[in-house]
Amino acid sequence: MNTWLSLLLKSVIFPGFLFIFAFALFVEWFERKLTGRMENRMGPSYTGPFGVLQPFADFIKLLQKETIDVRSMSTRIVDFMIIASLSLYILCALFIPYTGKSVLSFDGDVVLVSLLLSLASGLLYFAGLLSRNAFTVVGAVRLLLQVVALDIPLVLLAIVPVIITGRFSIVEIAHRMPESLIYAPFLIPFWLVALMFEAITEQAEIERNPFSMPHAETEIVAGYITEFSGVRLALVNLARDVQLTVTSSFLASIFLSGLLRPVSNMAMFINVVLLILETLLIVFVATEIKCITARLRIDIALDLFWKYIIPLCTLLVILLFSVKVIAL
């Protein structure tokens, strides 16, 4: 088959837009149901089996609603930013080896994906800022401060699996991750510490409690998405679901994965199931953290990142690197 056609099919159907769309809505249902059960509620239960189609129904419902153009909003740029952000998240999905091989891959894509994830959040900052409402501006500024603070630990932590496995591309890391730890058990403590930091950083990346300040409901209504409605809101919600899914899949593939070589269809199928389960595991942990914490203040969160997490992550990477070099 023509390589361009194949690339197009992959980016539109699997593991591109359609797969990510379905998976993201499933992850949203999973998160909502889990939150509901944690909070002594039912969670979505009516649409589809166990309410699994509820996020899809919400998406369709929002598409039908009127999209209000607020007079102060720079509509075109805002729309562009939302679509660009969503596209960037889907682009990141193409780097993730759901079947054991990824659509796009090169040495060093670990760092690229970490940065693209932050950039996509950064674009939503513009969407909030250009809505020009007191709530959206405060929310957008908080989002930007948070993205800037978490960007450094995110990249530093992405280097940890690189050092452990000695490979630079996500696919290779995903294949070698558990083996490398088994062959070098003295690296396991580093891996565990990195996982712990990663759990904290991911909460900030996906804006969940205790780092949900950019859309703190009781303070600034809905933060940077306050002025969005209709199609725009549907797309922002979708972008945030995709963000949660892709971030979790990315972390699952570089920190947990033990994917098989894609030699047969069976192996590829097992890989898809395995990575989806690992993604759900990470979403599960993130949701539990969200449910057992109160929201922090933005200054406390920035303190935490700049004073503790960034220096400690740097130290972790330096130590890990020295240990690895000495061991070799």
Partner: peptide, 16 residues
């Protein structure tokens, strides 16, 4: 108070 601090779980449990 728990809800205003963003701690929805505590809010739901206290109200239960």
């Amino acid at each position: 108070a728990a809800e205003e601090l963003g701690f929805d779980t505590l809010f739901m449990l206290i109200w239960r």
